[in-house]
Design a protein around this nucleic acid. Structure first.
Lengths: 190, 190, 190, 190
DNA sequence: CATGAATGAGTATTCATTCAT
DNA sequence: GATGAATGAATACTCATTCAT
């Protein structure tokens, strides 16, 4: 459940790896996945060779970025879910997931991957989130806070879509709040 | 209403242009925008040179595809809007816009562009849709069918996001219907 | 049997293709197959793109070079074989094949390929040579000029090996002549 | 006779050096010289750094491998040469040299290098073989077993070429035997 | 001394765009 | 006007070699 590598990396290697992940996260998020690997390496202050030593493929780097993101989100969500009643937990986590998915469409893809994708590493961490969501949904439905006919796939799709909606309203917090109201109202029974 | 060029094209040139647009729409929609221009030209039965004579840039081709799509959607929407009462018209058009945006996320981007983008040609055709939406929204709000605090930007963002949501549920019509219920319920006043 | 392309190439395209083949033959022969494609393109006075338009792969270029060489050799050999008596034809062609294989080990590989390789294009042209050799061998054996227990595979292997031997003696024509004597003596019965 | 370094190596260093040579011999022979150094190091159970400490260059490693091979062959040949009459010794050693050169064409190159190449380390060990061959040739010629006009360079070239011939016939021992007959017959006077 | 992480020049191949035919 | 050949910058990835740990 923790992305711990096989053997502990040497201090500098670990630092480089972390830097690469940070830079890649930033770059992929703000400028898309088309950015050249070389540029990412340069931004992280290492040579391309180093990047490819840590991540044998550009895709592998992308995956690692997503996994780290999903893991962070999963644990934040889990923490929040643990300390509140069902209804509050459900809506709180919905907000949290949306908020954490800032930055273009990266998380969108990640959550999309949660529904479809084949990459095994992603499967694992997205499975954790899905389980969490399933529990939250069931709890909120049992508490009568969410319409009982809503399934997990719809919830996930709605999260992905709402992320996209929010992207459009990046600059207008009030508008974003109104969207939350619309969606939450719609989720409640009747 | 039509992106007609300065002088009328010769018959065969017009035919080529139309074919290119058809093929490009199909190809971009089903396989994404990464497809080589050469392949599009071949599929349209013309040489690359011809493609680039009509559209000086790959981006220009993409833009033309979107414009045509937006125009088609705009007129369909306008027709629907004309023949129904405010509330019915509003929700009907919402559905229509979502349905017409099937096929990858190309239209999502198009609508996103409508909200943000700088391309002038797009601005024009998306402006038409925006005006239409503004009228529909105002009418529905006046009729008490939609919460009065919702602005046009939120509506557009919501359309874009809901498109994304629906993409995730491509294969499950019932789930898609439930999403419509959620969103429409949320849109109605309190 | 002739490497004629599907449709006749435009004049300049044909010229470029021929130039690329010439340059590649020269370069691969004198400096090995490790030479960068870019360098070959430059030497031929074209851009890399042109090279890859004509030969979709470096390997394809290599193959084309070999095919052309094999075809040239095959027709030369056939001509020679036609105009002499069995024994003379056999030994004359042996010499010819060795002489035409100058330049490092390229032809060695080609003939090696004749025995083993999988590339279909090569198969065809090397098959022609093999047939020729089989006939020459049979004729010479019937004429009592070559030991009757020698098979086609041995003959081919001997050609390849003798090519290598001759490479070593590039600079000493007398020594090469002595090798021919040794091999030809060895080939004769008893 | 041994490529011994300036001062005696520490026990473990010597062991590493030996292992590297063994592994490199195996790997170069079976998979060609294109194999990455890192892989050779790993197969030898050491880090790349260690490899490069012992052999400052990949080429140096290759050279060392060849030198060791040549030395082994030289001593085997010398032993065989000592215990037989001239004619028998000559043909026996010819066979031995061919047989020992199995495994790709690495040894071919090595012997080729013996004839031409500039690498000093190789010169030394190939000189030993050349001297041996010169003696064997002279002896056999004196005994009337080999044509008197054949020089050492031709003999070496013939060895190299015959190695190549035999590579082609790897799988057919009878054919190989026939090639020996051809070459040996050809070597005998008239 | 051994290790293996870091380096970065080098390589095949793609693709938007231009231009001779 | 149409064609498709030519162009060459761009990109992911490799591997011999160096150097901090």
């Amino acid at each position: 459940m923790s992305g711990a590598p096989e053997r502990p990396l040497r201090a500098d290697a670990a630092r480089n790896r972390a830097r690469l992940l940070d830079v890649a996260t930033e770059v992929f998020t703000t400028r898309g996945v088309g950015v050249p690997t070389e540029e990412i390496a340069r931004a992280a202050g290492v040579g391309v060779g180093t990047l490819f030593r840590h991540f044998p493929t550009k895709e592998a780097l992308l995956e690692a970025v997503m996994v780290r993101r999903l893991e962070a989100i999963a644990s934040e969500t889990a923490a929040l879910a643990a300390e509140a009643e069902p209804a509050e937990a459900f809506f709180g986590c919905f907000r949290l997931l949306i908020d954490r998915s800032a930055g273009k469409n990266e998380f969108t893809q990640a959550l999309a991957a949660a529904g479809v994708d084949a990459h095994t590493a992603l499967q694992e961490s997205s499975a954790a989130i899905q389980t969490l969501l399933a529990d939250l949904l069931a709890g909120a439905q049992r508490a009568g806070a969410v319409r009982p006919d809503l399934g997990l796939p719809e919830l996930i799709a709605l999260l992905v879509g709402t992320t996209t909606t929010m992207e459009q309203l990046r600059t207008d917090p009030d508008a974003r709040e109104r969207i939350f109201e619309v969606v939450f109202d719609g989720l409640r029974p009747r």
